[in-house]
């Protein structure tokens, strides 16, 4: 049986958007806003459970962009809005203008983990540290490895405030798919992954690469201390990527549900693609299907329909 999970920012419903606007205008209070967050998170969680997904997350509905919580760390502030890769979405650049230090838990307040009833499936998403550094503006650190070290230490301390009993921790990496990363950087990332392993000893760790077109990185992924590698197969030349990932020893999550198209993929087409890919993969154990990147690039109703599609994908017999 095919397995499946979702990652990344999920679009906000109309009612949540409205509540956020009303909260900004001070027409509703924090308690009322939280009520809407909870209702919307519950809806999404229920849909994932009904679609029989193997891990369930909260949709990251409170996140303005994947980097925003990081801007609350000591040493980092919010910078200007910048285009998010080749999309029409804009994120605030974290400006690193002082030594990054852990002060207080930040990330846990952005998750709604208590609303995921099925603790066997609870998962969380977070952007990987290399992507954070690439997408930030560093005006403090002279040495790159010191910056990465301080940042990863801070994230690890922050993650200590999240229950260790989560089923899966999904790292999202838009940068590994688009930039040339050297071995030293991968070494630091692996050191971070080793520490994650210690903290989340019983959890599955996945690394999900968005916008994959960086073929050079693929053979190096075998060295990373992760369980599953997720690859966006909708952004660039699928054949070229497949030719590289076929020899990976890791379990693979195929990003076949396209977050950039508004039509719902034909299940027969997905089935054909899965069979074609499985035919060439070296590691055929536990193949997953995932969304290609943040579903937030789609309108809410379309994204909900895409989640529904997973219930059909789950019935595909590999």
């Amino acid at each position: 049986m095919i397995k499946a999970y979702l990652t990344g920012l999920f679009p906000r419903s109309k009612s949540l958007r409205k509540a956020l606007r009303e909260f900004e205008k001070k027409n509703i209070d924090y308690k009322e806003l939280m009520k809407v967050y909870q209702e919307e998170t519950r809806k999404l969680v229920e849909l994932q459970i009904n679609s029989n997904l193997d891990f369930v997350y909260d949709g990251m509905l409170a996140w303005q962009d994947l980097l925003r919580p990081i801007c609350n760390y000591k040493g980092i502030t919010q910078g200007p809005l910048i285009r998010w890769f080749e999309t029409n979405f804009f994120y605030r650049v974290p400006i690193i203008n002082d030594k990054i230090e852990f002060e207080r838990p930040i990330i846990r307040d952005y998750y709604f983990l208590n609303l995921i009833n099925d603790s066997h499936k609870t998962s969380v998403c977070i952007i990987d540290p290399l992507s954070i550094v690439y997408l930030s503006e560093n005006i403090y650190y002279k040495k790159y490895d010191e910056l990465l070290f301080d940042l990863t230490s801070c994230i690890l301390k922050d993650l200590n405030y999240i229950s260790e009993n989560i089923s899966a921790l999904h790292l999202i990496s838009p940068v590994l798919g688009t930039q040339n990363v050297n071995k030293d950087e991968l070494h630091i990332l692996n050191h971070f992954l080793d520490n994650l392993r210690k903290r989340f000893a019983t959890s599955i760790i996945t690394l999900n690469i968005y916008y994959m077109r960086n073929l050079e990185i693929i053979p190096l992924l075998n060295e990373l201390n992760i369980d599953i590698i997720g690859i966006d197969l909708c952004y660039w030349d699928r054949e070229k990527i497949l030719n590289k990932i076929k020899d990976l020893n890791l379990k693979i999550a195929l990003g076949l549900v396209d977050s950039f198209v508004s039509y719902i993929e034909n299940i027969e087409y997905i089935k054909k693609q899965i069979h074609r890919i499985l035919h060439v993969l070296k590691n055929k154990d536990e193949v997953y299907v995932i969304n290609s990147s943040d579903l937030d690039r789609l309108p809410y109703d379309v994204a909900m329909d895409k989640v529904n599609l997973f219930s059909k994908i789950k019935t595909i017999n590999p």
Partner: peptide, 9 residues
């Protein structure tokens, strides 16, 4: 077909 986020809310 619906609204898509540009930034923040």
């Amino acid at each position: 077909v619906g609204e898509v986020r540009v930034f923040d809310n």
